[in-house]
Amino acid sequence: MLRHVISPQDLTVKELEDLINLAKDMYSHPSNYSEKCKGKKIATLFYEPSTRTRLSFEAAMLNLGGSVLGFSSADSSSAAKGESVADTIRVISSYADIAAMRHPKEGAPQVAAMHSSIPVINAGDGGHNHPTQTLTDLFTISQLKGRLNNLTIGCCGDLKFGRTVHSLITAMSRYAGVRFVLISPDELRIPNYLRTEILDAKGIEYKEVNKLEEVLPTLDILYMTRVQRERFFNEEDYIRLKDSFILDKDKMSLASPDMLVMHPLPRVNEISVEVDEDPRAVYFKQAELGVYIRMALIYTLLKEAGKIEG
């Protein structure tokens, strides 16, 4: 059956668990999977620049013994000539076995999925969805914490526009005993629909605060995001608030010894480089684990599409 992954919600809790277990096995025994996708090709259709996501997809397919084709900007594709997403994917379907698409317009991978005869994975569509980042986050938490339930997760920074935080909250809200501490300036709090449709609707415990220091000791996970200058109404507010959301060595001394610091990357200045040496800082590990969960996803989708044998 042809299956696409466009939104993190396209996967059930059971499917997520299966993917995470498969990714764990791939991480522990990579050689067992090194030829599983031999002769298969992934098309990476990136209409806007990306470093980690595109290379992570490509590394994942190469680790599975497959090969890679694609483009890394709209300028180097037929999109520059005005070709539609629908036409592009129809053609690519005959060149590759699976596709990963990043597009600046929200919903573009959904359009691709509707016209594709190969599985399509959304690799980020504007500020909308980025399901493989969510998978990466869940895999990282599961791998390093040993569970996805009974956790206090702090989300810090720009919670209004940060799609990774929105997806993480939505995905983690499906597990029992998860609490959220939402740390942001008032101007950048989570959108109201998340509060009403997810947190309140599911009766999830959460609090919204302005200061990182006061909640750090209570957290199992601190998920940092960038606070971008352009999100503020004025420069004064930005300067006044930005330091409250920068994680440094002093703040880390307040955190529990087994708290994890995660970040979807790229990091700019919200995590001081001195924190990198702290064993609790796992954002580079998180990027590494992203390759394995993408391997699990590619492998599973190709298997479900009948393109490889199990």
């Binding site: 629908a86 597009h103 929200e106 919903g107 359009v111």
Partner: peptide, 13 residues
């Protein structure tokens, strides 16, 4: 009416 939606640029959608 979302200016970032694919419907704003994809022909015939």
């Amino acid at each position: 009416k979302n200016p970032r939606c694919i419907t704003t640029i994809e022909q015939g959608l």
